[in-house]
C-alpha cells in the first residue's frame, strides 16, 4: 500500500521534473536573442539584403512573433509528439541525426558504466576488507589519481604513449570499422579507459568508505559469530547492505561524470556520437539540435533517478515511504 503510493509519487515526480526541464529550456530560449534568426539575417545581409527585414521574416515564418503562451503550448506539444524540428547543420530531421549518432556513443558509454560499477565496487570493497595492506594503499593511490586527472589530458597522454610512441592503438576513431571486430575493440579501448577512470575512482572511494563503515557494524560481527565465511560476510551482509547507498551514487554521480566526459572523449577521439553532435550544433548555432542534445541527457538523468528510487524499494526494507 505504502509502496504503491511511493512508486506513484516517484513516477509523478519524474514527470514533473521532465516538464520543468523542458519549460526551463523554453524559458531560456525566450529570454535570449534568437541565434538562428541572427545567423539567417547575417547571411542575408552578406548577400545584400536588409538585415532586420530578413530577421523578421525568419521569425514570422517559424511563428516566433506570436504571443509567448501560444509559442509555449506549441513548443511543449512538439516536444511531446517527438516533432523536434529540422537540423540545418546536419541537413536532416533532428531525431534522424540523433538516431545515427547514439550508436557511436553507446559503444563506449555502456562499457564505461559497467566498468565503473563492477571495477569501482569490486576494488573498493576489496580494499575495505584488506585495509592497511599494500593493495589497499595502491587502491587509494589509484583512486586519487583517477579523481584528480583531467580526462582530456589523460586522453592526450594515452594517445601520445600508445598511439604515437608505441603505435599500438589507433589515435582516433574510425566509424567505418565493423561493430563487432577486434579493430573496433582496439579503437574503443582508450575512450573507455579514459571515460571510466574518473567514475571508477569515485565509486571506489565511496564503496570503500561505505564498506568500512559496515564492516565494523554489529550485524557483521553477528554474522562472523555465526561462523560465516569472509566471502559470505562480504556478499550477503556487507555488500547487500552497502548496495542501498551505493545505488544512489551510481546513477546521480556516474551519469554526471560520464555525460561531461562524453563531450571530451568524442572530441578527442573524433567519435561521431551525441556529444560531437551537440558540440557541432552549438558551434553552428543550430538551435533545434542544441535543444535535443540537451534534453536527451536530461531525460536519461531523470529516468536514471527514477530507476534508482525504484531500486530502493527492492533493496531496502526499511524505506519510509512517507518520508520520500
Amino acid at each position: 500500500m505504502g509502496m504503491k503510493w511511493y512508486v506513484v509519487r516517484r513516477v509523478a515526480w519524474a514527470v514533473v521534473a521532465t516538464y520543468l526541464a523542458v519549460s526551463l529550456t523554453f524559458g531560456l530560449l525566450m529570454v535570449t536573442p534568437n541565434a538562428g534568426a541572427d545567423v539567417a539575417a547575417a547571411q542575408a545581409a552578406a548577400s545584400g539584403q536588409d538585415y532586420d527585414a530578413v530577421r523578421e521574416r525568419y521569425l514570422e515564418r517559424r511563428g516566433l512573433d506570436r504571443p509567448v503562451e501560444e509559442q509555449y503550448v506549441d513548443y511543449m506539444t512538439n516536444i511531446l509528439t517527438l516533432d523536434w524540428g529540422y537540423s540545418f547543420s546536419q541537413g536532416e530531421p533532428v531525431l534522424a541525426a540523433i538516431g545515427e549518432a547514439w550508436v557511436y556513443s553507446a559503444q563506449y558509454f555502456v562499457p564505461s558504466i559497467l566498468i565503473s560499477a563492477l571495477l569501482g565496487y569490486g576494488i573498493g570493497l576489496y580494499s575495505a576488507l584488506n585495509r592497511y595492506t599494500p593493495t589497499d594503499y595502491l587502491g587509494s593511490f589509484v583512486a586519487y589519481f583517477g579523481i584528480s586527472i583531467p580526462n582530456f589530458w589523460f586522453a592526450i597522454v594515452l594517445i601520445l604513449l600508445f598511439g604515437v610512441v608505441f603505435r599500438l592503438l589507433p589515435t582516433f576513431y574510425d566509424s567505418g570499422v565493423a561493430l563487432l571486430s577486434v579493430q573496433n575493440a582496439k579503437q574503443l579501448l582508450l575512450p573507455v579507459v579514459v571515460l571510466s577512470t574518473a567514475s571508477v575512482a569515485g565509486q571506489m572511494r565511496y564503496s570503500r568508505a561505505q564498506a568500512i563503515e559496515y564492516a565494523r557494524s554489529a550485524f557483521v560481527k553477528t554474522a562472523r559469530a555465526k561462523g560465516a565465511s569472509e566471502w559470505r560476510v562480504l556478499t550477503r551482509h556487507i555488500l547487500r547492505v552497502a548496495l542501498v547507498p551505493l545505488s544512489t551514487i551510481l546513477i546521480a554521480d556516474v551519469l554526471a561524470v560520464l555525460f561531461a566526459g562524453s563531450f571530451i572523449i568524442e572530441t578527442i577521439f573524433q567519435i561521431p556520437g551525441l556529444g560531437r553532435l551537440a558540440l557541432e550544433a552549438i558551434q553552428q548555432r543550430d538551435t533545434p539540435l542544441v535543444l535535443a542534445t540537451t534534453l536527451i541527457p536530461v531525460f536519461i538523468a531523470i529516468l536514471g533517478n527514477l530507476l534508482q528510487d525504484l531500486a530502493y524499494v527492492a533493496l531496502d526494507p526499511r524505506i519510509d515511504y512517507g518520508d520520500r
Binding site: 550485524f219 553477528t222 565465511s229
Partner: peptide
C-alpha cells in the same frame, strides 16, 4: 574457528538494535 563459531561457541551481543542485518 569458523567451524566452531555458531556451532560450538555462540555469541549474543550487547545491542540488539544493530546486531541484526537490516535488509534480511
Amino acid at each position: 574457528l569458523r567451524s566452531l563459531r555458531g556451532a560450538e561457541i555462540a555469541h549474543v551481543f550487547q545491542n540488539p538494535q544493530d546486531a541484526l542485518n537490516p535488509v534480511h
